[in-house]
């Protein structure tokens, strides 16, 4: 109900538009009716239109899973990769062609399960890319098996008596990694917030990790339902350096001004389970970015000759 209302509160494109959002849709998305992936795809398309991203200079990399179908539907270069391995591929793309805009779409299986090792190291590399974790708390493509983010006690086909362990929290995990530079959370049922978060992620010069809470109408239809129905259970983290959507002020009464530069507060907020929190938990634009650290400096012809001569002098007799 609320989600329909919010989706109409569109952000005006503030620049002359050559490509419209729908120009970025390569073919119709094929997900289950009601899947949160549709909303994420719409937000991405709008972001691309807003930034006028050129399809030939934009790359979408995914792994395997429902969310990993993303590259098939976006009008840009796409790489539908191997399960869990989206991030190393994306890092390779960025290192080879730093000028390209790189987006990564992963599910909770890709990111927090089979690809968790890459996740930790990609955060530390801090290559400049937008990384979307579409977290529906379940393995959807293989039809309802427990993932690391499945709530404790939630029954699935591989945990018929309920998931044994507390769920892994991707925000806490990401915030714990050295050189993490941008960590945010948003939800598919608040599309205007999802769009604004993607915008902030795109603007951040580094590895922008966005966890999108995403409803799976088939296998986890109820895990986010309380929050979908009652906005009072959600607190928005707002800040001029984070995300602040004035249009959401009336709907979400609980708002907390949180400076995204404060890593201790970010970790503390991520750890708390009293409310669902959406917003930018952490952002530091000053941290070292891998492709810049590893960039080979341009050397002039004169400098090359000078270096060669210096080297030859070592062998002069």
């Amino acid at each position: 109900m609320s989600s329909i209302a919010i989706s109409l509160l569109d952000l005006e494109a503030d620049s002359p538009v050559c490509l419209e959002a729908d120009d970025y849709q390569k073919r119709p998305g094929k997900w289950c009716a009601g899947c949160g992936d549709f909303g994420a795809l719409n937000a991405v398309k709008r972001l691309m239109a807003k930034e006028q991203l050129q399809p030939e200079k934009t790359v979408f990399v995914s792994g395997i899973g429902c969310s990993s179908r993303f590259p098939h539907y976006v009008n840009a270069y796409g790489f539908h990769g191997i399960h869990g391995r989206a991030l190393p591929v994306a890092t390779g793309v960025k290192l080879a062609r730093p000028e390209l805009d790189v987006f990564v779409t992963m599910g909770d299986g890709d990111c927090t399960s089979i690809g968790a090792g890459h996740w930790i190291h990609a955060i530390r590399y801090n290559a400049n890319m937008v990384v979307l974790l579409l977290d529906n708390n379940i393995y959807g493509l293989t039809k309802n098996q427990t993932s690391p983010t499945t709530p404790q006690g939630y029954a699935s086909m591989t945990s018929p008596r309920g998931a044994v362990l507390p769920a892994l929290d991707p925000l806490q995990a990401t915030l714990g990694v050295s050189n993490a530079s941008f960590v945010a959370q948003t939800a598919d049922w608040v599309p205007v917030h999802m769009y604004a978060t993607m915008q902030a992620a795109y603007e951040h010069p580094g590895f922008s990790f966005v966890r999108i809470l995403q409803r799976c109408p088939k296998f986890t239809p109820d895990v986010f339902q309380k929050n979908v129905e009652n906005p009072d259970l959600t607190e928005l983290l707002v800040h001029e350096n984070g995300v602040d959507v004035p249009a959401l002020e009336q709907l979400f009464k609980a708002r907390r001004v949180h400076d995204p530069l404060n890593i201790d507060d970010a970790r503390s907020l991520a750890r708390r389970s009293d409310m669902l929190r959406l917003g930018v938990f952490f952002r530091d634009d000053s941290l070292p970015v891998y492709e810049k650290v590893r960039a080979v400096p341009k050397v002039s012809a004169e400098e090359k000759v000078a270096r060669l001569n210096k080297e030859f002098e070592r062998y002069a007799v």
Binding site: I114, L141, T142, Q145, M157, T158
Partner: peptide, 17 residues
């Protein structure tokens, strides 16, 4: 130790139950 992948997933689901 079980992990799903099409088309064997039903095997590990059987074992899990």
């Amino acid at each position: 130790g079980i992990y799903p992948i099409t088309p064997q997933t039903e095997i590990v689901e059987y074992v899990a139950k």
